[in-house]
Design a protein around this nucleic acid. Structure first.
Length: 426
RNA sequence: AGAGGAGUGGCAGAGUGGUCGAAUGCGGCGGUCUUGAAAACCGUUGUACCGCGAGGUACCGGGGGUUCGAAUCCCUCCUCCUCUGCCA
């Protein structure tokens, strides 16, 4: 969340940032926050004073008892009643104010980076690079992947419907093999790039949800385990970044780089429709995520590095792709700057989002209390970054569609040893 | 899952109602000594919030309670250890 102390100092910038996101009453929101904060300070001062008096009095009473001055002690005891009442009432006030303040802060998104274009929706995202070198020319009768998977019997949606529900497919035979190949390939590449692999839990608690910003903003996106008060992760970002919740790392350890493979679970409430077919949108999918904990001075450099990493992956899979800089309206709640990668899926003639690479600056770190000791030996909030590298199903969709031939589906070179064949046949 | 035990500062560990933000040791930092280092000795050393400052407040696993006063007593939750049971 935003740092209250910085809001007052940079009010104009903050309002401008929120406006970019399409929040028109930003000034009002921010003023409410700073007002609440001064109320908080005032109330706490009053409360501290009352507590100070109570503490003094309690010491005196102890002393009086020791000296055997019972009557005086009892008299002093009577005096504390009033203080207690004031204490109680002020504590309640303070509590209310603090809750209100934190709720307000939870509901204000991150301030976009200056380079983020204004805009309302994904239509306003800025295409910063298009690489169509690998755009295929498909043979007559080329099919979208939902037909291919049935024809090759490699992914079974019906079976998923039966066993779980819509959006939970079974991958079979070469389909399962392809998923595993992609996961392994992505993890191996991440390792080569210096990311330490972790295999995190795929259930997280509420604190973790708040730490990275899924709560309270996106509660409806996650599946909840209600009897244990846990959530299925929507992305490995959540458990991996939360490894560093309430942690003070040393400057020498930065940047901290982690990669992790997990299944991801998303309810996608309200986003289901006819345009979402096959692998384009699922409730459960596999993803390799890369995460960095960074020195604020270097985080944008590292963001570029992560974008380059993802670009290399997409290139190596011989897929046409483009890179987008998300506009204010499409930017994630906690992000300051996000680049999306889309690959071209040739039979459905669609760009599919396969990666989102973001710098959250200190927005998550502030919630996480993730800090490092800087060269002055002072504690400072770190920056957090993450990116998909990559999400599997849409990559798979594009590979199936783009690589189809009348003889079978060609396996990209980099995957052949993982899959164990260079072509998948019926 | 059941029974028992335990959770205190970076670590170890004392503290069972007031003089405790907390002994002591280790570690860290600064110094004396030394050509340098070690040893020894001396000093210093938690975090957050409020305040220009003096200083104040809170924090002994989390939350709640009793009390004029709680690390200490009570309730509750969490975690760890031991034993028993169950299970990839």
């Amino acid at each position: 969340m935003l740092l209250v102390n910085n809001i007052q100092e940079n009010l104009e910038k903050y309002v401008e940032g929120l406006t970019k996101r399409g929040i028109t009453d930003g000034a009002k929101l921010l003023n409410e926050v700073t007002d609440l904060d001064s109320q908080r300070k005032k109330t706490q001062q009053q409360l501290d004073e009352i507590k100070s008096k109570s503490n003094q009095l309690a010491k005196q009473i102890g002393q009086l008892f020791k000296e055997g001055k019972r009557d005086e002690a009892e008299a002093a005891k009577a005096e504390t009643a009033q203080l207690k009442e004031q204490d109680k009432s002020l504590s309640e006030q303070l509590n209310t104010i603090q809750n209100e303040l934190i709720n307000k802060l939870y509901n204000i998104p991150n301030i976009p980076h200056p380079s983020v274009p204004a805009g309302k929706s994904e239509d306003d995202n800025e295409v910063i690079k298009v690489n169509e070198n690998n755009k295929p020319s498909l043979h007559d009768g080329a099919k979208p992947h939902w037909d291919l998977i049935a024809e090759y019997d490699i992914i079974d949606f019906e079976l998923g419907n039966k066993v779980t529900g819509a959006g939970f497919p079974f991958y079979k035979g070469h389909g399962a093999r392809l998923v595993r190949a992609l996961v392994n390939y992505f993890l191996d590449e991440a390792q080569k790039a210096g990311y330490i692999e972790v295999q995190p839990p795929i259930l997280i608690n509420e604190d973790s949800g708040y730490g990275t910003g899924q709560l309270p903003d996106k509660e409806g996106q996650m599946y909840g385990i209600t009897d244990s008060n846990l959530f299925l992760i929507p992305t490995a970002e959540v458990p991996i970044t939360n490894m560093y919740r309430d942690v003070i790392v040393s400057e020498n350890d930065l940047p901290i780089k982690h990669a992790g493979y997990t299944p991801c679970f998303r309810r996608e409430a309200g986003s289901w429709g006819a345009h979402v077919r096959g692998l384009n949108r699922l409730h459960q999918f596999d993803k390799v995520e890369i995460v960095q904990i960074a020195d604020p001075a270097k985080s944008y450099e590292l963001l570029d590095e992560m974008v380059a990493h993802v670009e290399k992956l997409v290139n190596s899979l011989e897929l046409p792709y483009r890179i987008l800089r998300l506009c204010g309206g499409d930017l994630g709640f906690t992000s300051a700057l996000t680049f999306d990668f889309e690959v071209y899926s040739a039979a459905q003639e669609k760009w599919l989002e396969v990666s989102s690479v973001s710098n959250f600056e200190n927005y998550q770190a502030n919630r996480l209390k993730l800090r490092f000791k800087n060269s002055d030996n002072k504690k400072q909030l770190a920056h957090t970054l993450n990116g998909s590298a990559l999400a599997i199903p849409r990559i798979l969709a594009a590979i199936l569609e783009n690589n189809q031939t009348p003889e079978g589906i060609k396996v990209p070179k980099v995957l052949q040893t993982y899959v164990g064949t260079d072509v998948i046949k019926k």
